[in-house]
Design a protein around this nucleic acid. Sequence first.
DNA 1: ATGGTAGAAGATCTA
Length: 258
Amino acid sequence: MKLVTFNINGVKARTPVIERWLDEAKPDVAVFQEIKSVDEAFPRSVIEDRGYQLETHGQKGFNGVAILSKLPLTNVTRGLPGDESDEQARYIEADVGDSGFRLCGLYLPNGNPAPGPKYDYKLAWMERLEARARDLLARETPFALTGDFNVIPQPADAARPDAWREDALFLPQTRAAFRRLELLGLYDAVRLRHPGPGIYSFWDYQAGARQRNDGIRIDHWLLSPGAADRLQDAWVEGAPRDWEKPSDHTPVWVDLAL
DNA sequence: ATGGTAGAAGATCTA
C-alpha cells in the first residue's frame, strides 16, 4: 500500500497540480499539509470524484491538514492532544482500513524567529507530539507519524547546513526533540532506505533554490516498530516540484505491507 | 546586509 505526505501550500492554488498528481501517482493514502482553507471551502469533489474518502482539519488562511484514502478512514480525531487552548489546525489522526494501522498527519510549527514565542510554541508542540507517540506505542498496534515536521534532522539533510545553523528548523533543541521521538523506537523511513546525503523534500521559491538543488529534508515518515517491519520502500518524488505553479515541497512516499 | 517568492486575505502575515 502506497502512502504519501505532501505539503501542498494552499489547496485552491494547487488544485491543478493535485489533480494531475493524483491521476499519475495514484496513492492509496495521502496526507496533506498547509491546505490554507476552512473545511467548508475545500474543493472536496476534486478528491472524492477520484474515489477517495476525505477528512479535513482546516482553518482560515493558514495551516490546515487533511487525509485522503481509498481505504475507509475511521476513528478520525482532529487536533494534537495536550493543550485545549491551541487553536491552530496542524494535526489529524485516523485508522486506515481494518488492520488497526493508525495514521497521524501533522504540520509541525515552523518556529521562526528563534528564540521567541513562536519557537517556544514549536518546542511545546514537539513535547506534546512525543507524549502522543508514547500513548500510541503503548497500544502496540502499528502507526506512523507523517507530515511536514519543519525539522532538518542532520547536516546531511541540507545542501548548505551552515545556512540553517540559527534557524528554528535546525537548532540543536529542535534536532534533540526530533531525536527524542526516534529514541522512543520510531524509524525515519526515508533515512532507513537512503542512508546517504542529498535527499531533500523542500526547496525555497526564492533565489533559484530548486535549480541549484539547495534543498532540505523536512517532510518525514516516522514509523512505529510494527509499521517499520512492514516497510517495503521509501522515496521522495521530486518531479512535481518542477511542474507549473508547484508547491515548494514535494511528495514523500512509503510502501507498507499492510 | 539585503532581497529574493508565494499564498491567502484583504492593504499584512506566514513561511
